[in-house]
């Protein structure tokens, strides 16, 4: 598809004209910085991430700095978000879930604003489409749910519960123990991270293709403008769909973290 667009733009001779798909995500460092052999260059992704997280933090600080008994517009909006997360926590984890509302709210709002940079004009790049962000968020989630399991059940009971779920014939443990260990300790954080990452990558590519199809095809005279016109009509639909995906991914990440926390709080039955 990218090749087709490039062919239309440059008239057939497009071998090597366009960078591979990585060019959509990998930006050169604006301020190169290297510490102990680790590349810490400040690039567009980092700047966007700082901007959106600072904006979200500012919104919450301004809105909830001096909470009123009768909330204003901003305060009641922010309270609605917190209340929504509180509802998830109470429903999934139970009464003990109130402890995790700050963490889950941070996850939800953080992931939402990082994702929403994908369809924000002039930013148009979700920082969560670089694997570092989802991986780090999933690492935090992993540390929390393993930590909660060890704290609530004790080290032996928690890992024993994972490795030897009761009510299973003894011989099956040969197969079950490795599968349970793998799925609980490795696949859970991995799928958390990959789900967010893959959705953002796919969404970013979709947005780029739609917008560049408009840009490339709309001015082309004989027939190409039809494709461009179709892309122009489709663009609002694509943006709406992306907004839905953005919200859904933030919700799913938050909810799955709550589910994992709840499963490590109580022993397996």
């Amino acid at each position: 598809m990218i090749n087709v667009l490039a062919a239309a733009e440059w008239g057939g001779e497009f071998e090597g004209v366009l960078d591979p798909i990585n060019a959509l995500f990998d930006f050169p460092a604006i301020i190169p910085l290297e510490l102990f052999g680790v590349d810490l260059g400040i690039n567009r992704t980092i700047l966007i991430a700082w901007l959106v997280t600072a904006a979200a933090a500012a919104l919450f600080i301004v809105g909830l700095r001096s909470p009123q008994v009768v909330p204003g517009k901003l305060q009641s909006f922010l309270e609605m978000i917190v209340d929504f997360i509180r509802g998830i926590a109470l429903e999934i984890i139970g009464p003990k879930g109130t402890r995790f509302v700050p963490l889950l709210t941070t996850f939800f709002v953080g992931i939402f604003v990082l994702n929403v940079a994908k369809i924000t004009p002039f930013l148009m790049l979700p920082p969560t489409s670089r694997m570092a962000w989802p991986a780090f968020l999933a690492l935090i989630s992993w540390l929390v749910f393993v930590g909660v399991g060890i704290k609530e059940q004790g080290f032996g009971a928690y890992f024993g519960g994972i490795m030897f779920p009761p009510g299973v014939p003894k011989a099956l443990y040969v197969i079950l123990t490795p599968i349970e260990l793998l799925s609980n300790l490795i696949l859970r954080p991995f799928t958390l991270a990959v789900r967010l990452f893959a959705n953002m990558v796919a969404g970013h590519i979709l947005v780029v293709i739609t917008l560049s199809a408009i840009h490339v095809f709309l001015p082309s005279v004989p027939v190409g403008w039809m494709v461009g016109g179709f892309a122009l009509l489709a663009a609002p639909v694509v943006f709406g769909f992306e907004l839905f995906i953005i919200g859904l991914q933030a919700y799913i990440f938050t909810m799955l973290t709550a589910v994992y926390i709840s499963s490590s709080m109580e022993a397996h039955h």
Binding site: T191, V194, R195, A198, I252, M255, L256, V259
Partner: peptide, 19 residues
């Protein structure tokens, strides 16, 4: 809620393939 948990588990397969 349960549906979303199930959806997340099933979707993981497609995402693994995507990656």
């Amino acid at each position: 809620t349960t549906m979303f948990i199930g959806v997340a588990v099933v979707e993981a397969l497609a995402l693994l393939a995507f990656v």
